[in-house]
């Protein structure tokens, strides 16, 4: 118990520093947050000359925003509902 408490105490400042440095740097890190999947797509095209096929639903512009927002909302609603059901309404009870 004491050992793991010490590990937590050592890890916490490192993680706080990591988080502090992550977000202020966003300002100077560039305009485009290219995904690693896109980097791989480009590299694959460069090495093999083969491009990725068009996705089934080509989400461009606001359609992409809409789908990501809707997907995030749906997932959040499910997580929130079940979280409340398991961890709030039945907190401390033993009916697993």
């Amino acid at each position: 118990m004491q050992k793991s408490k010490n590990i937590y105490q050592r890890l916490t400042p490192m993680l706080i520093m990591l988080l502090i440095f992550m977000f202020p740097l966003t300002v100077s890190a560039g305009e485009k947050w290219q995904g690693t999947d896109d980097l791989v797509d480009s590299k694959m095209e460069e090495v093999t000359g083969v491009s990725a096929k068009e996705p089934l639903v080509n989400i461009e512009g606001n359609l992409g925003l809409f789908l990501f927002a809707a997907g995030g909302f749906a997932a959040g609603a499910v997580v929130g509902y079940q979280w409340h059901k398991i961890f709030v309404a039945k907190a401390g009870k033993d009916d697993g």
């Binding site: 440095f21 992550m22 977000f23 740097l25 966003t26 890190a29 560039g30 485009k32 947050w33 290219q34 995904g35 690693t36 999947d37 980097l39």
Partner: peptide, 12 residues
């Protein structure tokens, strides 16, 4: 997609 400022990229 979580942005990583050190690299200027993002990943999942």
């Amino acid at each position: 997609p979580i942005p990583v400022p050190v690299t200027g990229t993002s990943s999942h």
